[in-house]
Design a protein around this nucleic acid. Structure first.
Lengths: 355, 355
DNA sequence: TTGTATGCGTTATCAT
DNA sequence: ATGATAACGCATACAA
């Protein structure tokens, strides 16, 4: 790889000073058209590319955002990332990806918390802003060190978090309406006549889970009773839905007639467990779910679920971040309404047209 | 945000020269233990962070790799990215993510090809290396401009492509064994007695598709006959599997007894179409698939598929890239063998233990 | 409109 | 073992 062209060479070859070249580069109006053309021609000819380093020395900007995500394998996060990437690109920012894998393998963090190394890299890389999608911050009681590190990070670089507001954390939060959807969902089941309803998936001590379970319980309480033994919290994956449902089915004395899954992936596991145990869904046991993942519409049966309309969250969070970077303290409100998507898994409209 | 601490301040406060501080920073052995400790203390106290820009001015390195992916929503790519991110992190590189969304919305590229803007950013960002996971390069006849841009990019920055070798492209390729798996799969179906076998999914003119269809045809030819009308090429998503199968089912005169799907997402669509048309899988029509996506094991029925063991590909491609960056022209061979995962959707071992 | 000179924060080279 | 200083490539304040 040969050494790159510098602004000096462009200046020499164009017969002007470096400042003039710099002006052309930065679209300064005070350059004669003739020189501008000439210079641009030389730039193109030599394929000149300004050094990010030299530029950064002065501007202190990388035009890069970091996005920290717990599990890039999770459709919920990828759908957010897609939007984030798209909008970032539009406004001239690149994305540095950090997949902390908080979920999955081992829950207990090695170095206190999984995000530690990510935070370290982020500071080193001197990105302009940081986007955090869940992870440790989603816990009811985030690791103490984590919060310290997070606040410290936020002091150097603006941080926007897609998640529920956390005490003692000065970052900017973009909150989701997590309970309304579950409330609607539960009401849907109740309206269909269900009274014994279970809940599967999610992790105890995690905000999403707590909020959804609470919304579930609160709604259920109005018309029926909450049976704690029908609430199984484990995690957010297929296996969890499968095992959770198995557990419920094991107690044949006390079977629910319907089940709410924390997300569509878990719901798939639930459906599988039902099929394996020869139960028909929705006839024997109905299944409702949250988050409307891409393939859930093609499951057998098609999963009735909640579309959180997260499309908007991605863009909104980037917008907030950019505002913070430019310290335009605009306090725009993020609004999004969860929407019930009625399909087959709860037995409603079974004879009607399906979508 | 206050202005950051510089090496000079550290030097002053430690009562040494900047050179000595720099030496401590870079673990140079020639620093007395006493001074090293003293300096380190000051560094920690002030929370000093070396400037990437100033460093880059000298080293020309960003310690960043770019990864260009067509669709981060696709499990095939995310599974690769997970590994790539993990290994990159281990060896001290960050990842710049570019999601070109080649797939999905509009196929015809706006500016010639979707990767154009990504390539531009990559050059601007001066990453140390580039990883390309499919996209335009996967086509039988990649866009001419694309190839030019790609070679141009490769001249400035080492590029590793996970995909089949392409004529007139000087990048480094990490190839996958695409046909062996399908051959095995087809043989599996043939061994189960199937003779009329269809193929669904994939895009004409794309290497993966062509290779898999060819492998399918070649294997089928040995024991039976290829019926072109049973081969439906459209795309790689659920809808494609659904519509593809619908199309096949429409011709009741010429139903296949088994179908091969290009990947598990498509297979899910196929299963749905079968269920909707009241066909039982595997009894009426068996379904075999490729790529072993996370949830396919929980589908109804569980999908028999090919595990390409891509785990290794991710790490291997990063290794190759790093070698290229350090111009250690090591020509390591990538070996990975597709493995048949027999589950329920083809009817084999139906009475045996499942998994 | 254009050019000159300076500084940005670090590492590398060369002395000492 | 330590220090002084010259790059690195660009933008910008100031001068013309």
């Amino acid at each position: 790889m040969k050494k790159p062209v510098t602004i000096i060479e462009i200046a020499e070859k164009s017969g002007v000073s470096v400042s003039t070249v710099s002006r052309v580069l930065n679209n300064s109006p005070s350059v004669s058209d003739k020189k501008r053309k000439k210079i641009q021609a030389v730039i193109d000819e030599l394929g000149y590319q300004p050094s990010v380093f030299a530029r950064g020395m002065i501007s202190k900007k990388t035009n890069t955002l970091a996005v920290v995500v717990p599990d890039i394998t999770n459709p919920y996060f990828t759908s957010l990332i897609v939007k984030i990437e798209q909008y970032s690109k539009e406004i001239g920012y690149s994305l540095l990806l950090f997949n902390t894998m908080t979920a999955g393998s081992n829950k207990f963090a090695d170095t206190g918390f999984k995000e530690a190394t990510a935070f370290k890299s982020i500071i080193e890389k001197q990105v302009d802003g940081v986007l955090i999608l869940g992870g440790e911050i989603d816990k009811e009681q985030p690791n103490e060190e984590y919060l310290i590190a997070l606040n410290q990070l936020n002091q150097q670089i603006p941080v926007v978090i897609i998640g529920q507001k956390q005490e003692n954390c000065e970052c900017i939060f973009v909150e989701r309406d997590l309970d309304k959807g579950v409330t609607t969902l539960t009401q849907h089941l109740l309206a269909l006549g269900h009274r014994k309803i279970g809940f599967i998936g999610g992790e105890a001590g995690v905000k999403v889970t707590t909020q959804r379970v609470d919304a579930f319980k609160n709604t259920l309480t109005i018309y029926s009773e909450v049976d704690e033994s029908l609430i199984i919290l484990n995690d957010y994956y297929v296996e969890d839905g499968y095992h959770g449902m198995q557990k419920l089915l094991a107690n044949t004395e006390n079977l629910p007639t319907a089940v709410v899954a924390i997300n569509d992936t878990v719901a798939i596991g639930v459906l599988r467990a039902l099929a394996d145990a020869q139960y028909n869904c929705p006839k024997d046991i109905a299944v409702a779910s949250c988050d409307c993942f891409p393939n859930s519409e093609f499951q057998i049966p098609r999963i009735t679920t909640i579309d959180q309309h997260n499309e908007y969250l991605g863009k909104a969070s980037v917008m907030k971040l950019i505002s913070a970077i430019q310290s335009e303290d605009e306090n725009s409100m993020i609004q999004h309404s969860p929407e019930l998507i009625i399909r087959e898994s709860c037995g409603a409209r079974l004879k009607g047209a399906l979508r």
